[in-house]
Design a protein around this nucleic acid. Structure first.
Length: 478
RNA sequence: CGGGGUGUAGCGCAGUUGGUAGCGCACCGCGUUUGGGACGCGGGGGUCGGCGGUUCGAGUCCGCCCACCCCGACCA
């Protein structure tokens, strides 16, 4: 139970985040540096994220499977850019059963290579395509600087791996999954995102092109919240994933991969959280509603609890995820506790409500009296459904307004430097890696993506002045 | 991997010139309480981050190591 106030979100965002994660009981530090324990409340949130994504994956023809944790070192080495990108952050097993291994095993940082090995065996004919497989697992990347959910040595995610007959189909799949991420982020998590293409220096190691959804956090920094990679024929060539086409000719496959991780929980925290703690989007919250019974003595208790039970049954039958908090604490303490944990809606039922046939409804996104209303027990189910929808909409609107208010179109590079100190710059960019690198060097801001939605026309690169047709989002990022 | 900081009960901290460890919160029990963080009484809990050294005696002094957090370079 949390007793003290959180550090100020506006004055010390980082410390606010750290303590919020611990006090909301989402996660805890593990005994190994950089590793995290996901606590039941955090995992429950992840399960709801999994459910929301998995439904979408299944609806688009994907199936789940499991691949090994260990990958032969030689596999990684088969794709040059891939191994170069991941080498610095690999965990390597050299001893097994007390014996030094003949070939060291990599603890998977991602599964493209071992997938490539399997797909090469499984795919013989154009009739075998496409292969649409998703994995729910964890991967290990030996990061130097870690933060709960945002960057840990081991993290949980899903990785989809698809093989297609043509590049067009593979690219179409890449974009379909990016759109699924966007749809999930905005419609389930109420996190507005910018879908775009990563620059060549920011793309996945081994990809032809990477695409991402980028979100703005409460401190105006960017977070890559999901990625989808067009792997071209790179991994197909490295692992010899080939098929016989209709003309009986050998062709290389075209593959793609896409992932979204527990980092997304960090996004939810940093986009919606407030001074009181976590604020969860209703569609993903482990408990959408918490019911707090109020009574002064056993007499009142015996009046209140049957009504609490009736409301619980009614709302439970209507499909809401809810919890009755019957702990032996004062109601006020419970309010603070559930506010810390971000429960979207609180229902208070006391003797006055029993007498009047009402309940008190308090919404998490609007603090104090502003968010509190009294609703008759008869019309509660409808009111709850409506309010939860409204909370989702207002969370999304608030986050979008925040991003728009902090996204600028600077007139020149001096202005650009100012802007990226405290938000996003949406600027013309020549597309050259040198320009991007210099901007990063000079401002600490990175190229987040080239949004798919472009204004059209042309302009001058914000850094070098070269004429270009594309605008990119720049900002400081996690 | 560089710079900074912190390690004493679950958390936050105190601990004097070295003398054998305490406070608040949390936790457990009983009672009174309960519409925005209740109160009283009683109780449990510590190899003082680790190893070594100085000393009759180390939480305290010295050395080495470790862990975690923050800031930079790399990343979902």
């Amino acid at each position: 139970m949390s007793e003290q106030k959180l550090p100020s979100r506006t004055e010390d965002f980082s410390e606010w985040y750290n303590q919020l994660v611990l006090r909301a009981e989402l996660a805890d530090y593990a005994p190994v540096r950089g590793c995290m324990i996901v606590r039941p409340y955090g995992w429950s949130l992840w399960e709801n994220i999994q459910g929301a994504l998995d439904r979408r994956f299944k609806a688009t023809g994907h199936v789940n499977a499991a691949f090994p944790l260990f990958i032969p070192k030689s596999f990684l080495e088969r794709e040059k850019a891939h191994v170069e990108g991941f080498a610095p952050e690999l965990a390597v097993v050299t001893i097994g059963g007390g014996e030094t291994l003949e070939e060291p095993l990599i603890v998977r940082p991602t599964s493209e290579t071992i997938i490539g090995h399997a797909y090469a065996k499984w795919i013989k004919s154009y009739r075998d395509l496409p292969v649409l497989i998703n994995l729910w697992n964890s991967v290990v990347r030996w990061e130097l600087r870690t933060k709960l959910f945002l960057r840990t040595l081991e993290f949980y995610w899903q990785e989809g791996h698809c093989a297609h007959a043509t590049h067009e189909e593979s690219l179409e799949e890449t974009m379909r999954m990016l759109e699924i991420y966007r749809d999930f982020a905005e419609n389930d998590a109420a996190v507005p995102v910018i879908a775009g293409r990563k620059s060549q220096s920011e793309k996945f190691a081994g990809a032809l092109n990477s695409y991402s959804i980028e979100a703005m956090m409460g401190d105006r920094k960017a977070l890559q919240a999901g990625t989808s990679h067009d792997l071209g024929d790179h991994f197909a060539r490295a692992f010899d994933i080939r098929y016989l086409d209709r003309n009986n000719e050998q062709q290389f496959c075209w593959t793609n991969s896409w992932g979204l991780s527990t980092r997304f929980i960090g996004a939810i925290i940093m986009v919606h959280g407030d001074e009181q703690g976590l604020v969860l989007p209703p569609k993903l919250a482990p408990h959408q509603i918490v019911i707090v019974p109020i009574y002064k003595n056993d007499g009142e208790r015996s009046e209140v609890m049957p009504v609490v039970e009736k409301v619980r049954a009614t709302l439970g039958d209507a499909g809401f995820r809810l919890k009755v908090d019957d702990r032996d604490m004062t109601p006020g303490a419970k309010y603070y506790d559930w506010e810390m944990r971000g429960v979207p809606l609180r229902i208070e039922i006391g003797p006055k409500d029993v007498a009047k046939g009402t309940v008190a409804l308090a919404r998490r996104d609007k603090p104090g009296k502003e968010g509190k209303s009294f609703v008759s027990q008869e019309s509660l189910t409808g009111a709850v459904a409506e309010t939860l929808q409204d909370i989702h909409a207002s969370l999304f609107d608030r986050a979008l307004a925040h991003r728009e208010a902090n996204t600028h179109d600077p007139k020149n590079y001096d202005e650009f430097k100012q802007v990226v100190e405290n938000g996003f710059a949406f600027s013309w960019w020549c597309g050259r890696a040198e320009c991007e690198a210099e901007i990063k060097e000079e401002t600490k801001a990175t190229n987040r993506c080239v949004p798919l939605n472009q204004p059209g026309g042309e302009g001058q690169c914000i850094h070098c002045g070269q004429t270009t047709k594309e605008k990119a989002i720049f900002g400081k990022a996690y």
